[in-house]
């Protein structure tokens, strides 16, 4: 579903992402871990076609991000960190705009179904400017799944949420994965969060992928969450001990 081949991004002498190579199967929830500045957001920007790679490429749902960005965009949904929408418009007005841009047919039906799915139909006709962080996050998620994409990219989705908001978000992610069959690519630096929902994880450090394995294998090899945290800290920054599985 996502096939990344030596994807790199450099800003002058600074290499933000170095030859990232990764395969993510359909139906997975992939947790992409790394410290702030590790290159996770740069990777997601290139995979969502918002930024051109310096070298390398990736195929998303069978489409090359360099050669066919429009087909890639049809297949994906994207929720950036700190979702912000048009504050002077209602959730319905915001979602109508994004649904039409995504080429959704029955726009109003789709909006109502999506907000039902995300358990927030009461937000439909309220101004986005009056929303809490958690409510904003739901509408942000809604705009990303209106066209029922195959793959959903989430950049630090739990950023700024309280524990209840984080728990609800985790449930929604699992629901989207199980009910709509979406493959989910999730950037985060919270290992405790990612292990609760992910089916596989990758760890990025200083622009390089230093670890990639299924969550089952990780649990089998490392056991408790405390050990997972040790693993994360041992591979960031780059450690010679653990390499890409």
């Amino acid at each position: 579903m996502i096939s990344i081949d030596k994807l790199s991004k450099a800003y002058g002498a600074h290499v933000a992402l170095h030859k990232l190579t990764l395969e993510i199967e359909a139906g997975e929830i992939f947790g992409f871990l790394g410290h702030n500045g590790a290159g996770k957001t740069t990777a997601i920007h290139m995979l969502t076609t918002l930024m051109k790679p310096s070298s390398g490429t990736a195929r998303i749902a069978g489409h090359d991000i360099r050669a066919d960005p429009i087909s890639v965009r049809r297949a994906i949904g994207y929720v950036p960190e700190n979702v912000r929408l048009y504050d002077t418009m209602t959730a319905r007005e915001n979602l109508t705009f994004f649904a039409r841009l995504s080429g959704v047919g029955e726009v109003q039906e789709c909006i109502e179904e999506t907000l039902e799915l995300l358990k927030c139909p009461e937000l439909t006709d309220r101004l986005v400017g009056s929303f809490s962080k958690g409510q904003r996050q739901r509408i942000g998620l809604a705009q990303a799944i209106l066209h029922r994409p195959d793959i959903l990219f989430l950049d630090e989705p739990s950023s700024g949420l309280d524990p209840l908001g984080m728990k609800t978000l985790r449930e929604l992610i699992v629901q989207l994965n199980e009910e709509l069959g979406m493959t989910i690519f999730m950037n985060t630096h919270l290992i405790g969060e990612v292990v609760k929902v992910a089916t596989s994880i990758g760890i990025l450090s200083q622009g390089q992928l230093v670890f990639h394995d299924t969550i089952d294998a990780v649990r089998h090899n490392y056991g408790s969450d405390a050990n997972l945290e040790d693993l994360y800290l041992s591979v960031t920054p780059v450690s010679q001990a653990v390499r890409v599985a």
Binding site: T48, T49, L50, I70, S71, R73, R74, I76, G77, Y78, P80, N82, V83, R84, L85, Y86, D87, F98, L101, S102, G103, Q143
Partner: peptide
Amino acid sequence: AMDRKGGVVPLIGVRPMA
């Protein structure tokens, strides 16, 4: 500015349009 200040530029950038 209303797109930039609204923070929706990336949301528009990932839509399938030329």
